[in-house]
Amino acid sequence: MKRDAKQSGDQLNAFLKAGDPVEPSTLSGDGIESALDEIGAEITGRSRRASSRWTRRLSMSKPRAALVIGFATVGIGAAVAGGSQLSAHTGRFQPTPQEIAKAAKTSPEKAKRLKAYVDMGGPGEALDPTASDFRDVALQVASDIRWPDAYESWRDSLISDEIRWSEKGTVETSGALHGWFAMSAFCAWVLDWRYADITGDPVVATEASKVISGAPSWKAVADEDPHLDPAATGEDGKSRASLFGWVLPFRDAVLAGDRAEVEHLLITEEHGGRCQDYDWDWRKLREAHARDTAWLSEERQHYKEYLLERRS
C-alpha cells in the first residue's frame, strides 16, 4: 500500500513537473553565467555591514498574494486581496451542489469546473486565517464535533496550528477546516478507545466505539467525502482518492475489538490515515528530534515505543 501511495504520488509529481514553467537547462548559458558572475562580484564588493538593499524597493499598492504562480482569480482559489481582514468571514462561498446541478443544465463544462473547485478546496465559505476573529470562527465551525474529554485540547491545538501557518492571502474553506477537525476528533476517539480497551474500561470503550461507528456520517466527513473508499490510494494509481477512506478500517477494527489492528493502523498509517499528525504529544516529541537523523531513521520504532508508554 505504501508502494502504491508512492506510485500515485510519483504520477502526480510527473503531472506537476510537466507544468513546470521553467526549463532549467536553458539557464546554464554563457550569457546568464556571466551576468551572474557580475552580480556576485558586485555583492562581495559591498560592505557586509551595510544595511542598504540591493535596490530601492517600493511596496506595491496591492501585495502579490499568490506566491507560487500568478493564478487567475477563479473561485475559491483566488487569494484574499491585501490589507487587513476584519473578519475571517469573507462572504465568498464555494458553489453549492444546487448551483452545480443548475449549471450542469446549461453548461456541463462549467459544472465540472465548479465541482472541481469544491473537490479541491472543500465546501463552504472561504475563511481568512489571518483575521483576528479566526479562532472564534473556527470554534463555530467545530461546534458539532466532539472530542473525548482527555483530548479537548486537540481542538485548540489544531486552531493554533492553522493560525501559525496563516499567511496574508491564504484562504481556507470552512468545509476543509471542518474536515481537519473531524480527522482530529476521530483519531482522538480511536486513541481513547484503545486506552479504554487496555485499561478495561467498558464504559469509555463503548462510548468511543459508538462515536467511531458513526463517524462516516458526520457532516464534516459526508460534505467532503460522501463515498468513503479506503482503497483510494490506488492500486493502479488512478482510482479516486478518498479523503476519509482511512476511517473505515479503523472503525471496523474498533467494532471488532481488534486492538492489535488499531495499533497496526496507527503505526503504519495505511490507507492514508494520519493520526500521528493529530497527536500533539507525539508531534512535540518528533519535533524535538527534528534534526536528529538517527532518531528520525527509526521514527516508526519510536512511535511504537511511544504508544507502548501510553499504556501505563
Partner: peptide, 18 residues
C-alpha cells in the same frame, strides 16, 4: 491545465506541491 487544477488549492498547499 495545471493552473486550472491547482487554482483551488490554498497558496501554501500549492507551494508545497510545487
Amino acid at each position: 491545465a495545471l493552473r486550472g487544477v491547482l487554482a483551488a488549492l490554498s497558496v501554501r498547499d500549492r507551494e508545497i506541491l510545487t
